[in-house]
Design a protein around this nucleic acid. Sequence first.
RNA 1: GCGCCCGUAGCUCAGUGGAUAGAGCGCCUGACUACGAAUCAGGAGGCCUGAGGUUCAAAUCCUCACGGGCGCACCA
Length: 557
Amino acid sequence: MASYSRFGEAQAHIVQSLDTALRARGFDNLKSYIEVDRPTEDGHGDLVSNVALKVARFTKMAPLALASALAADWNDDAVVERVEAAGPGFLNFTLNTRWMAEVVHQVRAEGASYGRTTAAGHGDRILIEFVSANPVGPMVVVNGRAAAIGDSLARILNAAGFTAHREFYVNDGGNQILKLGHAILLRLQELQGRDVMSTWPDDVYPGEYVISVATAWRAEHPDIVIDDLDESSYELLGDYGAKKFQQQHEAVLRGFGVEFDRWYHERELRQALAPEAVIDRLDRLGFMETKDGARWFLSEKFGDDKNRVMVKSDGTMTYFVPDAAYHADKFDRGYHYVIDLLGPDHHGYVGRMRAVVKALGYPPDRLEILIVGLVRLMRGEELVRMSKRKGSYVPLEDLIEEAGVDQARYFFLERAPETPMDFDLDLAKLRDSKNPVYYIQYAGARIHGILRQWRDLGEPDVELDLAYLQSPHERQLLWLLARYPDVIVRAAMERAPQHLPRYLTELASAFHGFYREQRILEEARGVRQARLALIEAVLVVLGSGLDLLGISLPERM
RNA sequence: GCGCCCGUAGCUCAGUGGAUAGAGCGCCUGACUACGAAUCAGGAGGCCUGAGGUUCAAAUCCUCACGGGCGCACCA
């Protein structure tokens, strides 16, 4: 097991020692059964092993008896201070505080790069595609959730040693662009004073947001006579609208702290005839079939519910084909892992995409599809109804403005990506203690305050002696600092950003408890210096962790 | 009907096969002439939807129910 931190070192050290102790008793080859983890609750030491329970059936010893024997044999060393057998047969390890305190040196030496590692990701390239909102209207709330999760996940993956790239797929081809063009034309006619609403076609976007696009187009093309335009201009107008909406998406996302490495256009694929090439490949592999005048991909062979049409009987392609070509291109570009964050209305999409990836010969387990759970927008008790069709909804930019970037990101990131969630706007915009993000930021602001006062005192530093850090509060902070690199690695490997908000809340809580209980600047020099170093290290980790979430850490609040 | 996601405290949600299941909010007690109370200390509040199974050990893994959501187009 690789270790990324002092926490991991302690784990590995104990595993090794236990293995040695078991061998000394004649039990060989049990190392793979040795687990060392943090206890689920206080009072059970710093680390716990269930090894005596695990190996009972090989050793023919009662778990508690074996645990007691192992504890009695244990030779204390620089890492482990005490071992106790407890409960049904657990071994509880208490670590040497002096050893733990060394983490403060490490954090101070490494600064903002503390917790980052190359050991987990080994530089493996990961492409993470998210948001990919269609350029036919503003983004909505669930796009914001995907944006926060995707961006944060990319940051976390990079911190864990992967090379993650963010990509936004722009669906700028196909029917919807023509529909958008149609909507723009109708809005242009409306601007001329014509009544278009009474005859508005069902399948054309009714949202009023198209009006501003029409107005902009009008201003840029004053010489064109609207009455001369007909359906032959849908494409032109649609392309114009798609560009506008993409620019809008870029601006809104940038304001949300999200930058993409690439905006990948469906049009690029079409121009390169990539969709046709995919059909060719599938055909040559024998996975295509013609039926009812259409051409079908036999995706059932690869675990999909049903076969999928790729070329309709009118000769045009379904949207699925460029998507398949896009995914083939992702793998062809040499990415080890391809992660898609999809909206909650895409459950049906997973099977077919996996099928086509598999059929084309790419490793299907390297395609990871995360469905981002539904977001219900609330104002207190009241559900904010949203319907994109009727054009009644809250655009993402309004949500960000109302809640604030930090709050919105935190709310999206503190929950597991796939769980449905309620976003309470009233709660998110509260600038007070009910809002959990302030709890973390306040810890940072307090530390900044203390450090400011320390600087103002102008007293010289004394030599740093971390042996002064001994209290339960201090030990807890040390242990949390030591665990931070593992939190990052775990969040990265599980694709689970929510571990970071949880961890940071715990760290902030430990700091607040410490702060209330123990003085810093009023203490004698040696103690003061040690505690200052400790809180500086806490500040580094708070800042680093919040940065991975895209959340700021203000010096004052 | 089929597939996927979700059922954990009053609410919103964590929870890595392990000991007495956690946090925030809400509710109840206490603590500031202050290194910033946006905080801290404590309390009440749970048949982890249900029933079987695997295991020394299940909220966690398996099966089947039940409840909620989302998908099941020659739309994108």
